[in-house]
Design a protein around this nucleic acid. Sequence first.
DNA 1: CGCACACCTGAGAGCGCTCTCACGGCAACC
DNA 2: GGTTGCCGTGAGAGCGCTCTCAGGTGTGCG
Lengths: 329, 329
Amino acid sequence: MTAPATRPATLEDVARAAGVSRSTASRVIARTGSASPAARDRVAAAADQLGYVPDPAARALVRGSGVRLAVAVVGTTAAVLDDPYLDRVVAAAARVCTPHGLGVTLHWLPRHAPQTLRRLAADRGIRGMVLVNTTKPVLDAVPRSLRGRVVSIGIGSPTVPAYDIDNGAGATQVLRHLYATGRRRIAMVTGPRWLMCAGRSVRAYRGLAREAGLPVRLVPGDFTAARGREAAREILERWPDTDAIYAASDTTALGVIAGLRQRGRQVPGDIAVAGFDDIPLAELSTPALTTASHPVGVIAAAATEAVLEPRPAPPVTLFPSALIPRDSA
Amino acid sequence: MTAPATRPATLEDVARAAGVSRSTASRVIARTGSASPAARDRVAAAADQLGYVPDPAARALVRGSGVRLAVAVVGTTAAVLDDPYLDRVVAAAARVCTPHGLGVTLHWLPRHAPQTLRRLAADRGIRGMVLVNTTKPVLDAVPRSLRGRVVSIGIGSPTVPAYDIDNGAGATQVLRHLYATGRRRIAMVTGPRWLMCAGRSVRAYRGLAREAGLPVRLVPGDFTAARGREAAREILERWPDTDAIYAASDTTALGVIAGLRQRGRQVPGDIAVAGFDDIPLAELSTPALTTASHPVGVIAAAATEAVLEPRPAPPVTLFPSALIPRDSA
DNA sequence: CGCACACCTGAGAGCGCTCTCACGGCAACC
DNA sequence: GGTTGCCGTGAGAGCGCTCTCAGGTGTGCG
């Protein structure tokens, strides 16, 4: 019968049951300060018997530092929903946090709403924060009180260190691969405009086009498969002689392939398709998708660790992305 | 300059700035009790100017009821990771909670560890809880203090109402479709054994097999694509004359298709493949995947609402799943 | 004019916890 | 034997907030 009667047991109850003062009980429970072995045992036994669990709210209130790491996702979920990106971020964060006794909480942040971020920042239960898919307005709204306890997966700011995939380099590798295999009229389906990483791959694309004298054929995307299919149609209409399509995400690339096939094009025969992210399905699609790796878990783990050990971090940490050539390009 | 100097503003600060007592300031901020228009304005102005945000920890402590809805996921993440299931649950929960001013937090629960659940239950910051992928041991460990504030997406218990997809009926529809199109040697790749929903589809499968006099060919799966590919190999080896494979998840089904193709089988020519979930990629794969709908968002929203309005709920609420015939079967 | 009743307001207790501080006891040292 | 220091302990303040309660002011009505 470890279950308490009605009201959950408080430290006071434990102290009374153990015949010590609340202070001593607190010291034993929180493993802070010193206590005699006898007192320690009695308190531990009482706590166990009463099913005592410290109240995180009270603890956070007085300690001023909480027991949770907040993962704050910026923007609507629609764009992120199609591939299991967020799951992996949260899973990695949880893996890093659990040994520290920290819980992970997930929050949605509207793209332009500093007060939501302030609300979050005011929560003493929150030890630190990892921003995902963040934007400049949001970064600018990071309150001073959060400085040094927040990192960003994606773009950063002078006060918020950034952890991200080097998708400029990744995109370049993929594009060079397309070029090396003879493709000369390469279209690109971008990521959402407001996302920084989208910008980097686009720059890589433009750079290579300029360098090699290739045409620039950009179609906006949003990382979803549905948009990929539509983008394929768009590309075929606007530039019928396109011989390769590079999509900023694998999910989009799979959509592109579906769209092309729907219009009777062979992949990679008529048109090569490459993506980015190396999602589990990339290997299993038909044809297997050529893509670039995106170690989300590693990045998220590094970002989380940076929050937990706030030592001076470089403003931007980029993780390498490697070409994974398969059958689609 | 809404940013406070160093220490975040407290209600005391606001009250002082507005020239009222803390009590009055609290009434205005919390919109409880009455206050004169003049006082109301002055407090609002002061709060705004100081960038005041109420401390959720303190509030939860005194109110005894929190500002967060906990989504607790049971088990390792590996199995859930391959398809964006959790994202959709959390997104739906967030959509329902936001109008109520509630945040959503995500927690991982080990499959057999009641104390983690107790820890969570002790958190006054948590108003209610939605269990995902839960198991019987976890349900049994739900402490009394949480009764009436917790629901489960998946299996339930006498004290925890369940919200789930009727995947027994869904599976039956898919299997009948396979049967109706002439398939007689149907193998099935199941979900993880510890997951209840897996059990229901398996029962549907066994039921139909018995009824129609079909052989039973079960291979364990875990909802991942990789396992699907492996399962396909296994099935071909053990029962080479199999003419249809039903996978308990679309992701697995896509893996199965990849596995079959790898071994030179045509889908649906040689072997029909059907899945379950109707993920976005199902429509885009080649061939387009025959599957059954799984309105995760609707289910999660209903479950969340049930937590927020704790009226007597039926012990189990099943949501219908409909066959979506496409090209793979 | 007096009384009842509304409405607004501030004082203050207290949510469950941590942590500082002071105190008593005990060992060690000169 | 006195001083110093340390260890274990309990009293008590206080984290930021809500909420009860009592008081004070204004209005309506007899």
